[in-house]
């Protein structure tokens, strides 16, 4: 069918094999897990933004909110790890329900502002509440066990996160390609027309908002278990901005773009020291070493380059190069 261009299937399998082998190829498992948590978060954001055009500026509240609740359940209440993660997801769904009900009736910047405002409420609550530890954060979250499997080992935990991540990615991909996904696409392409065909468009938008919230919560809950702590950064508005950046850099509305974007941005944030020292040695220019202190500047530069050079993100640009039918802009 002369349809949307696609990334070749072997690429997907190649990436999966790479992810399976990565801890044996020298990837520090905690960094890998961090990447996957953010990749899952970016995919969740992309499920909403990429296929409905609703740009949420409040996803940090879902991500961090779930992280705090999971952390609380594991530390103070002694819940098992899967139960704690499940609770985190449920809380993200609850926050998402309130946010979604209030936001999906709005369009464009107004939608973003409503989500941002509600997320700020969550942020200030977390800043004040006792259980979050305020500025200190929630420390010492135990990883516990999963069905008898001890998660203390980074490698075991890595593969657990990988399984959850791949399953979630596959499921989100399915949502986009489901009967529900078809209605969503119709709503995003021509909402009044979809309403005139008997669909209550706001319900479908709320539906996908909830699905996105659930996966964002899963990402946040997993991250708090992986890292063993939860801090205010995760509910801060800058994290909402970060996930938008990751998704746009990788490619909004693509399957693999958010993953690629999350990996690039996470590596830049974590490994800026190594990268800047490498560049300094390679070129002999001392200035590169100073980049270490300015990861956000590098992020900004990458964002600007992406917006200028490939508006559909890296994966979007690759997809166009590999061809398939060109979809005309309307």
């Amino acid at each position: 069918m002369p349809r949307r261009p696609r990334i070749p299937v072997y690429m997907v399998w190649g990436l999966l094999l790479l992810a399976i082998a990565a801890p044996w190829l020298g990837l520090y498992p905690v960094l890998g897990m961090r990447m996957m948590c953010f990749a899952l978060f970016a995919c969740a954001f992309n499920l909403l933004a990429g296929y409905t055009g609703l740009i949420s500026f409040g996803h940090a509240a879902l991500f961090g909110g779930a992280g705090y609740i999971t952390g609380l359940a594991l530390t103070s209440w002694g819940w098992s790890t899967p139960a704690g993660i499940l609770l985190g997801v449920l809380v993200a769904l609850a926050i998402g329900l309130v946010m979604g009900v209030l936001a999906v009736r709005r369009y464009g910047i107004y939608f973003s502002m409503v989500t941002l405002a509600l997320a700020q409420i969550v942020y200030f609550y977390c800043l004040q509440a006792d259980f979050t530890g305020g500025e200190d954060g929630l420390q010492g979250i135990p990883r516990g066990t999963l069905f008898g499997l001890p998660l203390q080992s980074d490698r075991v935990m890595y593969y657990v996160v990988l399984v959850v991540f791949v399953a979630s990615w596959w499921f989100m991909r399915r949502i986009v390609r489901s009967p529900f996904g078809q209605v969503l696409q119709a709503v995003s392409e021509n909402e009044p027309r979809t309403i005139s065909l008997g669909y209550r468009a706001n319900r479908y938008k709320l539906g996908v908002f909830l699905l996105s919230a659930g996966f964002a919560g899963l990402a946040g809950a997993l991250k708090s278990v992986v890292m063993g702590f939860e801090t205010l950064t995760d509910v801060h508005w800058s994290t909402s901005g970060l996930v938008i950046l990751m998704t746009l850099v990788g490619g909004l509305g693509t399957d693999l773009g958010p993953i690629l974007g999350a990996v690039i941005i996470t590596v830049l944030e974590e490994k800026m020291g190594t990268i800047s020292r490498f560049l300094e040695q390679l070129t002999g220019i001392h200035w590169f070493a100073t980049l270490n202190d300015s990861a956000s500047m590098v992020n900004g530069a990458i964002f600007v380059l992406c917006v200028l050079l490939f508006r559909r993100g890296i994966v979007g640009a690759l997809r166009e190069r590999w061809g398939g039918a060109q979809v005309p802009a309307d």
């Binding site: 499921f171 399915r174 949502i175 390609r177 489901s178 009967p179 529900f180 996904g181 078809q182 209605v183 119709a186 979809t194 065909l197 008997g198 669909y199 479908y204 539906g207 699905l211």
Partner: peptide, 18 residues
């Protein structure tokens, strides 16, 4: 098909393939 989906009960199913 978008015109047919709702009355066929195939509008909400997000877990099934297209």
């Amino acid at each position: 098909r978008v015109g047919l989906q709702r009355s066929a009960g195939l509008a909400h199913q997000f877990w099934r393939p297209t």
